[in-house]
């Protein structure tokens, strides 16, 4: 393991976050706070409790998950896309680092940022709604696994994208709709039976459900199914990243 190389990439990426604090931390926190105000306080006051949990508290795990997914993808994709775009990737490719170390540096930094952001949003939520975390270990495990998995997905998107448009395409057209339709703001059984069936094909449902279970002990699908789905997705992302480095796809002609 080339410790200094991984540290260099990791600290470089973290320094970028510090430089862009407004965009990286403040902006997501403000937008999540707005969700709490609109959905939690304004609309939520008209909605009855869901399985014994107030609506404002019910949406907290889903909102954290929404930010976690979008920010993981966005951080990691930008982190690797920018060196490609500016040409500084030459240095990364000519350095004595393995593909594992490159991924560890970039994905590690992106996941760290997302986890920090998730925890900040969680703390922010505490100002708006009464919070309880029934299974703190599982909550952290889901937080870390989801951040790492979606940072890996972001890394793949960053390699695949050959322009800023494509960089935005997957987060905007796939991640955000899947999260909104993945039970962030409602329980699956609130949907008509047909859409309940359809929604089970949405992988984000399993993430939100597992994460919400760690807070309130209530879930749409079983904990095992949630865990299996996230591990499956992690394995798939790792396989794609390993293929990218093996073939040099879009980084090494």
């Amino acid at each position: 393991m080339n410790f200094y190389s991984v540290r260099a990439i990791y600290t470089f990426e973290m320094a970028r976050t510090a430089r862009t604090l407004l965009q990286s931390i403040v902006s997501p926190v403000i937008s999540t706070s707005l969700y709490f105000v609109v959905f939690g306080a304004a609309i939520g006051s008209r909605i009855t409790e869901i399985e014994g949990v107030s609506y404002g508290a019910f949406i907290v795990p889903g909102l954290i998950m929404l930010m976690l997914l979008t920010q993981s993808v966005s951080n990691a994709s930008f982190g690797i896309f920018f060196p490609k775009f500016s040409g500084t990737i030459y240095e990364l490719l000519s350095a004595p680092v393995s593909s594992f170390e490159i991924v560890l540096g970039y994905v590690g930094a992106a996941a760290t940022k997302s986890i920090l952001l998730g925890l900040i949003i969680l703390a922010t939520a505490g100002f708006f709604v009464p919070l309880q975390i029934a299974h703190p270990f599982w909550m952290l495990l889901f937080l870390v696994l989801t951040a790492v998995t979606f940072s890996l997905l972001g890394f793949i998107i960053g390699i695949w994208a050959d322009g800023f448009e494509k960089l935005q395409l997957v987060p905007l057209l796939i991640i955000t709709p899947l999260t909104f339709l993945g039970g962030s703001f409602y329980a699956i059984d609130m949907l008509p039976p047909f859409w309940q069936g359809v929604t089970l094909f949405n992988p984000v449902v399993y993430l939100v459900s597992g994460f919400r279970w760690s807070f309130y002990g209530i879930s749409d699908v079983s904990l095992g199914a949630s865990l299996t789905m996230i591990l499956l997705f992690l394995a798939l992302s790792l396989a794609v990243v390993s293929w990218i480095f093996k073939t040099g796809y879009r980084i090494k002609p």
Binding site: S5, T11, R19, S86, G87, Y90, E91, P96
Partner: peptide, 24 residues
């Protein structure tokens, strides 16, 4: 390299130190 590629918002010291770390 031939092209003038660099991290525009980094300082000279930071970018050169980064390169040393990157090379282990």
């Amino acid at each position: 390299p031939q092209e003038l590629t660099n991290e525009a918002f980094e300082t000279v010291w930071a970018t050169v130190s980064f390169s040393r770390g990157l090379f282990g």
